[in-house]
């Protein structure tokens, strides 16, 4: 990591220019450069993006920068930008780091070459993957943890990474839950797992599309091949940028898989039934 005099750096009244750190990572073929205040780096995970190599060389696919601003009342604001376009403002280093991490991961998911990232949780069971596509706050991590507790292997709580043959690779990061007690449980369950080697790519077995409804029992409707594909495409990050690659890749993946859709209740009940479904597919 190189600390450089800030080119276009931050003027802090009475303190001169505030130093920026420049660092970069390359993950899944995407190189991202970061220009951020040095103290922010302490709040970023290592690696910032799962599977990334630090300090790579070459032209950047994206530059994420954080500019420090000082308000009239003495407060501090952190302005986060990607390729010069402002993404947002945060009042704390920790919050700014969270946005930087999230956008770095999204940028990789969008631009990764030869791979299609689908927003969703993934577990492996008897060498086949269960993918639960869904956006943020849809309960992906909770479902993944419930399936791991029921005996499945952890692959990801954020993205299903499909290669050109339709196989699913792990997105190897610790699961992130918003409730502190859930996060502690996740750390106990998977802390040792994600510090080890990631599992091998596997073929798709099940796609489960569900929405939580208190008191519901998981009585899913079986989806056709096309509906299953549509369910994945609805959560495919690079779909608008690379529609043909996305559709072809996921069509291969669903060829021997089965999809189900329905309301679900508690995660533990869902997990038991999901593994039962995969046994029958």
């Amino acid at each position: 990591m190189l600390t450089i005099p800030p080119r276009g750096g931050v003027h802090v009244p009475g303190q001169g220019l505030e130093a920026l750190d420049v660092t970069s990572v390359r993950a899944y073929g995407v190189r991202i450069e970061f220009r951020v205040p040095a103290p922010l780096l302490a709040h970023l995970p290592v690696p910032i993006v799962p599977g990334a190599e630090q300090g790579s060389r070459g032209p950047a696919d994206a530059v994420i920068s954080v500019r420090v601003d000082h308000t009239a009342d003495g407060g501090t604001l952190y302005e986060i930008a990607e390729n010069g376009t402002v993404l947002g403002m945060e009042a704390s280093l920790q919050a700014a780091a969270s946005v930087v991490e999230s956008w770095a991961q999204l940028t990789v998911a969008t631009l990764a070459r030869g791979l299609v990232f689908v927003h969703g949780g993934v577990v492996g069971w008897q060498n086949r993957a269960i993918v639960m596509p869904g956006r943020s706050l849809s309960g992906k991590s909770t479902l993944v943890l419930a399936l791991v507790e029921a005996g499945a292997n952890y692959y990801s709580d954020e993205y299903a990474v499909f290669d050109s043959d339709g196989r699913i690779h792990p997105y190897w990061r610790p699961p992130k839950l918003r409730v502190a007690s859930d996060q502690e449980a996740a750390s106990r369950l998977l802390g040792g797992v994600v510090s080890g080697s990631p599992p091998l790519p596997i073929t798709l077995g099940l796609v489960l599309i569900s929405r939580y409804e208190a008191g519901s029992r998981w009585l899913p409707r079986q989806l056709s091949c096309g509906e299953t594909l549509l369910g994945l495409l609805d959560n495919t990050v690079p779909l608008r940028l690379r529609p043909e690659e996305s559709v072809k890749t996921l069509a291969k993946a669903v060829a021997n898989a089965q999809g189900f859709e329905g309301m679900r209740g508690e995660a533990a009940d869902f997990a038991e039934q999901a593994l039962g479904l995969l046994r029958r597919v």
Binding site: P59, A60, D61, A62, V63, E82, N83, G84, T85, V86, L87, G88, S98, V99, S102, W103, Q105, L106, T107, A109, T110, L111, H119, R135, S136, E158, R178, L233, D234, N235, T236, V237, P238, L239, R240, L241, P243
Partner: peptide, 23 residues
């Protein structure tokens, strides 16, 4: 088809769309 920004997961609702990447 969702825009890439629809998949942002910063924990905040309604994030702005990402800018065009440097290509």
């Amino acid at each position: 088809a969702p825009a890439p920004a629809a998949h942002a997961s910063s924990g905040k609702p309604d994030p702005p769309p990402p800018p065009p990447p440097i290509r």
